Amino acid sequence: MRLSVRHRSEYGYEPAAARVSLRLKLFPSVYDGQSVEGWTVTVNGDPVAPIYITGYGDEIALWQSEGAVSRVEVLANGVVSTEDKSGVVRDLPKKPPSSIFLRDTDLTRADEAIRTLAEAARKEDALETTHALSLAVREAIDYRPEATTATTTAAEAMAIGAGVCQDHSHVLISACRALDIPARYVTGYLKAADDEDELLETHAWVEAHIRQFGWVGLDPSNGISPTDHYIRIACGLDADDATPIKGHVVGGSQITLSADVAVSDNQQQ
């Protein structure tokens, strides 16, 4: 599939921030099943380019304001070609040891409820186990916007029984790690089905490491593995580690954010 993306994030600072620094993970991954035909990222209209690749294989750009600033607009857009590989992710530019993604974080640490869910879904085969876990997480946590926040932990989301894709992903990662299955958080974009409205935000899912396959994607929010409707951007130990935009602000500004994402077919004529 050939997909066009336009992702805009606008930050406001009141009073103006003395200085703003940004770390940007906004560049689509290139691997077997995904290629980039054209992609640009700008900050306040100025192009920014990756300056290094992390150990995870994500491209990183850095930006810093020249003096005080009251508004910062980050715009990422381009065309990405995707193939349905049944969720299997191969040939990323870096291959970190899978054991890194067994590490607990504050957002993904398992509690007794998550460990119980994990054990109940355990199968003899690791691949079957991860798919069973993905479905169990979706059944345990209703999709309910505004039920949680960006700082809600996996254990808290499990107790609430509701959340969004970030929460589904954190609980699935936590459950996988509880069974010694490496799992990582993935950020990206998802084109809505033809009979649905286009998404207005980024999406998140999980990749679990299965010995005979390597990394395999699982989207617990939709109960499937990623298809050619998905664009992979970056990964990390949790949402905070993988977030596309992370910043540092100097000054006591109140910060506001507005964002929108449009993903659509861009089939060649």
Rank of each mutant, 00 (worst) to 15 (best):
S4A: 10
S4G: 08
V5S: 10
H7Y: 15
E10L: 03
A16T: 00
A18T: 15
S21C: 00
L24H: 02
L26P: 03
L26V: 14
F27R: 03
D32H: 15
S35W: 08
V43G: 01
N44Q: 05
V48D: 09
P50M: 02
T54M: 02
G57C: 04
E59N: 02
G67E: 09
V69E: 08
S70N: 11
V72F: 09
V72W: 07
N77P: 02
G78Q: 04
V79L: 11
V79R: 12
S86H: 14
S86D: 14
G87I: 09
G87T: 13
G87Q: 14
V89M: 10
V89F: 09
R90K: 12
L92V: 11
K94M: 14
P97N: 13
F101I: 11
R109W: 02
A110S: 10
E112F: 09
A120C: 01
A121L: 03
K123R: 11
D125M: 03
A126S: 13
L127M: 07
L135D: 07
A136Q: 01
Y143W: 06
R144Q: 14
R144C: 11
E146I: 03
A147W: 12
A150L: 09
A150T: 04
A154W: 07
A155E: 06
A155Y: 02
E156D: 10
A157M: 07
M158S: 04
Q166R: 15
S169K: 04
S169A: 14
H170Y: 11
V171Y: 05
L172I: 11
A175C: 09
A175I: 10
R177W: 06
L190E: 05
A192F: 00
A192S: 13
D194F: 14
D197C: 05
E198G: 15
E201D: 08
T202L: 11
R211Q: 14
R211E: 15
G214W: 05
G214Y: 10
G217I: 09
S221P: 05
I224L: 06
S225V: 06
S225N: 13
P226V: 01
T227L: 03
L237N: 01
D240Y: 00
D241S: 07
A242T: 01
H248L: 09
H248E: 00
G252W: 04
S253F: 04
S253G: 08
Q254W: 13
I255C: 11
I255E: 15
T256N: 10
D260Q: 15
D260L: 14
